[in-house]
Design a protein around this nucleic acid. Sequence first.
DNA 1: GTCTATATAATGATAGAC
DNA 2: GTCTATCATTATATAGAC
Lengths: 216, 216
Amino acid sequence: MSITSPGSAAFEDLTARARIRNAALRYFTEDGFDRATIRDIARAAGVSPGLVRHHFGSKDELRQACDAYALQALHAYVERAMTDEGLNDPELIAEARDPLHPYQRYLARALIDESQAAAQIFDEMVAMTEQILRQIDEQRPDPPAADLRTRAAVTLAMALGIPAFQAHISRSIGTDILSPDGDRRVILAVLDIQSHPTISPDTARTLRQGLDKPHA
Amino acid sequence: MSITSPGSAAFEDLTARARIRNAALRYFTEDGFDRATIRDIARAAGVSPGLVRHHFGSKDELRQACDAYALQALHAYVERAMTDEGLNDPELIAEARDPLHPYQRYLARALIDESQAAAQIFDEMVAMTEQILRQIDEQRPDPPAADLRTRAAVTLAMALGIPAFQAHISRSIGTDILSPDGDRRVILAVLDIQSHPTISPDTARTLRQGLDKPHA
DNA sequence: GTCTATATAATGATAGAC
DNA sequence: GTCTATCATTATATAGAC
């Protein structure tokens, strides 16, 4: 029984406003903004639909409050991990991710739903990714074959694919990747993928050359 | 002016049914299933909302028709690229992708919207990815640190992140990645990312060991 | 095959009582 | 701060004319 469920002791301690926001975070994440209804959110928060309006004004303002809350978690991560020491310590980067973890899926979903804060969310994450890539580039013998910004945006989009398609990965591997066991399996897979090139530099060069004389 | 736009010569040649399906593919891709309306689709197809129902029965059946259509493109890709020769020729795999290209975003969006065919779409793509990874594994000195299925599902989700967050990548790099120039930049970035490990095998090992004694 | 007009259901917004 | 009741809007589903 989580903190966001009616009946738990922690749930009772929260203000109605906080319970509504927590329920909204959950429903926006699970169902997306459009399918999530104020009625569902109110019921999960143990309040009336009218109270949602009283506290947040409108469904869109409720989403803005959720965006702001998730952004806080993102900022906390940036401040903790994106430091000189942090960037040189992969373990710290991984560890600092923990508090952000519950909001990763919300952020990915907000980007897809084109939430108002979407551009800001993505841009801040691109900036983070650029910093990390810059650090990695230093150890690299050959110059990158694409500009930093594009590599960062693409790297980020690929990383966000995991929370975005969380349900499908879970079904495919037969284990909820939000569970400790599933999470572990995904991390092992990601580490393996990121530590092993899937195409050789040679093949990459050939494919790059193929770009100049487009087929068809 | 594309084939899917009223006024083009090709548009006039298509049956109303085909025009409706094409418009639906576009709106479901751009706006998602919920935000896309039958009215919008009908207008784009140059017909009345009533005719949409006449041909497809309901909005959900219209989506099923779109799913089936996009799945055809996926199957064509599988048959062309997932052969013995194809798997040994990265250029062929890349080239065979062309006809699938226009439907990649639809497929990614269908997965997010939990379309009825979503599980089938993802599972077939995982099977494709497993085949490719198996081929790559043969050239690999060390054994993978995660099972094939999980690596395939995660690799796929990451790849799907690019079409899923297409709009944000485009804004971030200042170029529409659906344009020839933007597409080229993304391909160059992907080739660079996939041909260069972002973490060293050593670091990966350290992080793997860190998993066994969970912090906090 | 195609259209117009209508019915119905769902949902966000609102007003007012306690 | 919280609730109940109601309104207004929107979109899908349906029926029937041409």
